[in-house]
Design a protein around this nucleic acid. Sequence first.
DNA 1: GTAATAGTGTCTCTTAGACAATATGGG
DNA 2: CCCATATTGTCTAAGAGACACTATTAC
Lengths: 243, 243
Amino acid sequence: MLDESWQPPAVLVAVDLVILTLRSERLHVLLVERGIEPFRGHHALPGGFLNNAGEDVLAAAHRELREEANLEGARLHLEQLGAYGAPDRDPRGRVVSVAYLAIAPGLPEPVAGTDAAGASWRPVEDVSSGRVRLAFDHRQILADGVERARAKIEHSSLATAFCGETFTVAELQRVYEAVWGVRLDQRNFYRKIQGVPGFIVPAGPNRRTTKGRPARLFRAGPRNALHPPLVRPGSPATNEGNQ
Amino acid sequence: MLDESWQPPAVLVAVDLVILTLRSERLHVLLVERGIEPFRGHHALPGGFLNNAGEDVLAAAHRELREEANLEGARLHLEQLGAYGAPDRDPRGRVVSVAYLAIAPGLPEPVAGTDAAGASWRPVEDVSSGRVRLAFDHRQILADGVERARAKIEHSSLATAFCGETFTVAELQRVYEAVWGVRLDQRNFYRKIQGVPGFIVPAGPNRRTTKGRPARLFRAGPRNALHPPLVRPGSPATNEGNQ
DNA sequence: GTAATAGTGTCTCTTAGACAATATGGG
DNA sequence: CCCATATTGTCTAAGAGACACTATTAC
């Protein structure tokens, strides 16, 4: 290690994006179809190598978001998931990938591709069930991204990033239900949301009409950290078995 | 981007370790004194470059843990914090560092150095207060590591990693108090800990003697996820301001 | 009116936190 | 006994979840 002639090995650094959105009340992820080897024809997360040695990693993520997903960084949450560095994760050689999580408001159209040929929204369920196979270790990266999103909407206002500029409480509830994969009581949800001071704020006297009583419109409030948090159900909080 | 002659830039990949422990009821971090430029003479987190192009990143972290901190990976929690890839973070050139968090049980001695000359435990407070300056972006990495630890001991049994094989409830409480930087009510803490089923289990009829009534000894239980969690205090859970 | 969704109130149970009381060792 | 620490109990208030009820639109 103290050998003066020793030089550390050079590796390639890539970024991969887990871009989540909500379509027809289900969680979707943006996938591209690979046009080159390896894994040609397979689905994969959007991403790519650093442009040049001077490019910041986060900047590269924003660039890929723009190039491959046609999404401007504006108002888009972008958060690092971690580094994936198994030696054999890319058959071309040593590649360490830095993964990012992005949340997009519901886009109805499958995003007109630009750089990558076939970019498309796919239900996350299709991947986790194995119906859609991903290249490299992207299935694991996606799983980590979904778990991060699930945990984050408990304590932060991240869930509003799935919605448009304004939204109803019911729409926000559908976000939680889709991300967590559970059903929530509408009435308790309403009360709980209103109990968190800066989470959502009324957006004008506007209302929206569908079928029943029109709902109030809200927008994301100033508060980013949620107190009290919205805890996802599932664990009955067993309190037995002292000793 | 579709230019066939284009080649992605090669960069160097390093690992950095945030190794935390508890000494005299205060949170400490293991630092080394740099023997070479850049930042010669400054304190830094232990770490180093990948050994060769085939070395796994996590394996490299374990190797550095062994080489620089003289700590075997046995029973040592090691968790990735993330990648740090700002273009100018290392004056020598482009280096992307993957940071890991490790928790060590209280070691009384300053760890006999091996590879790195002066490895020493330093109070985390000395760094966050600016009394000790770290090289590169290591101050930020340390801050991220401490925050990760603070958050993790709420929902996982990670806190027991700060203790030895067996410990008393009071010792475990001191872990929470040191990591969170708060004072907790001993009686409520005891009840809460006991209310989490698999968190800690009694370790024999042994006891330990100091001054007052001897305390029961426990060891880490099988449960890794804590239900219900131990929420850190500090936010009064304001519940006013409907609308 | 009915259907359908939005929003409010109320009840019960669990848990968090304050703090009293008791237990068990060493002087 | 006294002191110090450990362990148990009790009380109160806040939040979670179940669920009845009212409100407001379209038809």
